[in-house]
Structures are given as C-alpha cells and as structure tokens.
Simulated assay, not measured.
Amino acid sequence: MADTVASDPKEEALRATRTLNPRPEAVVDAVFTVSEFCDPRDLVQVKYEMVRRVRVDKVPAARAARDFGFSRQVYYDAVAALDAGGPAALVPGKPGPKGPRKLTDAVMEYVETRMAAEPSLRSKDLADAVAEKYGLSVHPRSIERALARREAARTQELPKSRS
C-alpha cells in the first residue's frame, strides 16, 4: 500500500539543497516557536538567526546554541562562515572527497614522465606502472580521465595570443 502522506514542497526544496535541518524539534528559540516566517526546518535560517541573536540581541553564545539546537562549536563555525562568505557560506558543502585520493599530483607527474619517455604506453600499462611504483590499484580509465583534466587545465592556463 502506497503512502498517502502529501509531500511538502518546501521540505523537498530544503532536502534538495542539503539545507534541511535534521533536528528542527531541537529549535526552541521563541521566534521560531511563534513566527510563521521563521522555519526551524531551514538550516541556513536557523544558523543565521542564532548568530544574529548573539550579535544583535547580546544573548550568550552558549544559550543561543542551546536554544537553536546546536553545540557551541557549531555556533562558532557558523560565525566564521558568515564572516568569510555571508549567508551563502552557511549552506553545507557537497559531501564526499574534494580532490584526488589516488591520482595525486606526484602520481600524475610520474605517469606523464613515463608517457613522455615511452609514448606507446597504453593506459593499462600506466596503471600497472603506478601499481608497481606506488602500490595503488588504479583503473586505466581513471588515468585517461586524469590526463585529460590536466591537459584541459594546462590549455586554460595558456595566455591568449594578441592578434
């Protein structure tokens, strides 16, 4: 039997942008309990209001953090994010790795050196060479993609010629 619960468009939008507060019930600040505008499900709004409450209303940081359902560390992280990038910085970043884990710059320099010395090497041969030298199991297609990214980056760095 299918769920008959209607989905909430705002909740769907917050979830899609990773800004859905996982614990809206922990927000006990008076503004959020009486105002229709303030939504405890909106993580960015809750964090912004928490920082505003300390800075403008002079509420102690520990109390504000507690009333908004966060630790003091989360409060200080929100302050740093706001100071560095404004409200947009309160939006959580994408999860997952932020850079190469296996095909680091050092490994790719080795791969390019091998290719320059022996242009007939295939990506499978390069993957085997990386495994032998670094002990890393890398798919040949991953090496091809990494080489293409490096080439594209080099192409963008070239100065435009004057005509």
Results as ranks from 00 to 15, higher is better:
Q156E: 12
N21E: 03
D67N: 09
P87N: 02
A78F: 06
D83C: 00
L103P: 05
V46F: 07
R23F: 12
A13E: 10
S35C: 09
P92A: 01
R23M: 03
M108Y: 04
D77W: 01
L136P: 00
Y76W: 11
S71P: 02
E11W: 09
R55V: 05
S71T: 06
K98M: 03
G96F: 06
L121H: 07
D8T: 01
M115S: 08
M50F: 10
R72I: 13
S7H: 14
E112W: 05
F68S: 09
V46C: 12
E112K: 12
V74A: 15
L121N: 05
V27K: 08
F70R: 04
V56K: 06
Y75H: 08
A78H: 07
V56H: 06
L103F: 05
A88F: 00
D39Q: 14
K94L: 11
R52F: 06
H139R: 15
R154V: 02
S7Q: 15
F68Y: 13
G69W: 00
P9D: 13
V111P: 00
A148K: 15
K98H: 06
A78E: 07
P95Q: 06
E12S: 11
T33M: 06
D105W: 04
G69Y: 00
A78N: 08
V79W: 00
S137T: 14
R101S: 04
T155V: 03
R154M: 05
A78W: 08
S163P: 09
K94R: 13
E118C: 04
L126H: 04
A146G: 05
D105F: 05
K47D: 03
P24D: 13
E118Q: 11
R52Y: 07
A64N: 05
Y76D: 10
D42A: 07
T155I: 02
P60F: 04
L14D: 10
P159C: 09
M50W: 09
V91R: 11
A80E: 08
A78S: 15
T17L: 07
D39K: 15
A116Y: 03
F37R: 14
P140S: 12
R145N: 12
E49T: 08
V34Q: 13
L43F: 02
T155N: 03
A89W: 00
A64L: 06
R53W: 12
S7M: 14
E118L: 04
D39E: 12
R55I: 00
Q73L: 05
R66D: 14
R150S: 04
D39Y: 14
V46W: 05
V46Y: 08
D125S: 11
S123E: 11
P9N: 14
A131F: 11
R23Y: 14
L82T: 03
V56A: 07
P9T: 12
D128Y: 01
V34D: 09
M1S: 14
P140I: 14
A89L: 01
A80V: 01
A127K: 13
V138H: 08
R53F: 03
V34E: 13
L158N: 04
E112H: 09
L90V: 03
D105M: 06
R154L: 07
D77Q: 06
R162K: 10
K98V: 05
A84F: 01
M1H: 09
A6N: 07
T4I: 04
P24Y: 12
Q45T: 02
D29M: 03
P60H: 07
A2P: 12
E109G: 03
